Simulated scan of single mutants.
Amino acid sequence: MFKKVTNKEELSDAFSIRREVFVHEQGVPIENELDSYEEVATHIMGYAENREPFAVARFRPYEDVAKVERVAIKSSYRQGGNGRQLMQFVEEVAQKEGYSALVLNAQCQAEHFYLSLGYEAEGEVFLEENIEHIRMTKQI
């Protein structure tokens, strides 16, 4: 089940997944993981049937589009279409909030995944937290 975060407990679940995936798995410093956009971003959570939090994403206003960030899924849930369902839910919520386009900085290892969802790569590969990324966009 995917939902928009509406309380501090859900936001804490989101931060917990981000710490697990970005800080512990990928080595991003914790002080770089949480940022000044937490308050203005719309956070999305995924919960399993047993109520275990397993997926997170956020988007925020960026120029004239929504910027999708901090997309993470616990390793044991990375199969079975969970990532696709998460991103479809993010797109639905962003569209309901009035956005017609999304931009994201995809880790290069996930570029094919985003291409399969209709995103288009733009520009050159760049480093963010010592991980190769590429800018991608999609009209929704």
Rank of each mutant, 00 (worst) to 15 (best):
R70C: 10
H43Q: 01
Y62V: 10
Q85W: 09
I17L: 02
L127P: 10
K3E: 13
V71D: 03
T137S: 06
A72H: 01
I44F: 06
A66G: 00
K4Y: 11
L102W: 07
N105F: 05
A72N: 00
R135K: 09
N130M: 12
A110Q: 01
V56F: 02
Q79K: 13
E38N: 10
A101G: 13
L127V: 04
V56K: 00
V21K: 05
N7D: 14
M45E: 14
G81I: 13
L104Q: 10
M136S: 04
V5S: 10
E63M: 11
E10Q: 15
E128V: 08
K8V: 11
K96C: 13
A41K: 07
Y62C: 06
R60F: 15
S12A: 15
K3C: 10
Q85I: 10
T42M: 00
E132H: 15
Q139S: 14
E9I: 14
M1H: 04
S12Q: 14
S116T: 07
G123A: 01
L34S: 03
G98W: 10
N50G: 07
L102E: 02
I140S: 05
V28E: 03
S75Q: 13
K3Q: 15
L102A: 11
F126G: 11
F15A: 01
Y37T: 14
K67P: 06
E120A: 02
A66N: 12
Y77Q: 02
M87T: 00
H43V: 08
Q85S: 12
G83M: 04
D13L: 08
E9C: 08
R18N: 12
E91A: 09
V21H: 05
D13S: 14
C108T: 13
F15N: 00
V28K: 10
E52S: 12
E128I: 13
A106Y: 04
F15G: 00
E69P: 11
E52R: 12
E91M: 12
G83F: 05
E25D: 14
R78V: 11
K8H: 09
A72M: 03
E49V: 09
D35Y: 08
G123E: 02
N7E: 04
E38S: 08
E69F: 04
I73V: 15
V23K: 03
Q139L: 11
F89Y: 15
P61K: 15
K3V: 06
P53W: 10
S100V: 09
R84V: 04
E122R: 13
K4D: 08
I140A: 06
S75Y: 14
V5M: 14
V56C: 07
A41T: 06
E128S: 15
A101K: 15
P61V: 13
N7L: 01
L104W: 01
G123T: 03
V28R: 14
G27D: 06
E122P: 02
I44C: 06
T6I: 15
R19E: 08
E129M: 07
E33V: 03
L127W: 03
R84P: 01
E63W: 05
H43D: 01
F59S: 02
R84M: 07
E97M: 06
I44D: 05
E132D: 15
M87K: 06
Y62M: 03
V93M: 02
M136F: 04
G46I: 05
H112V: 06
Y37D: 14
D64C: 07
V71E: 02
V40E: 15
E132P: 15
A101M: 04
E25H: 03
Q107H: 07
N82F: 05
S36P: 00
Q139R: 10
L86A: 00
M45F: 05
D13F: 13
A110E: 03
F126S: 09
H24R: 14
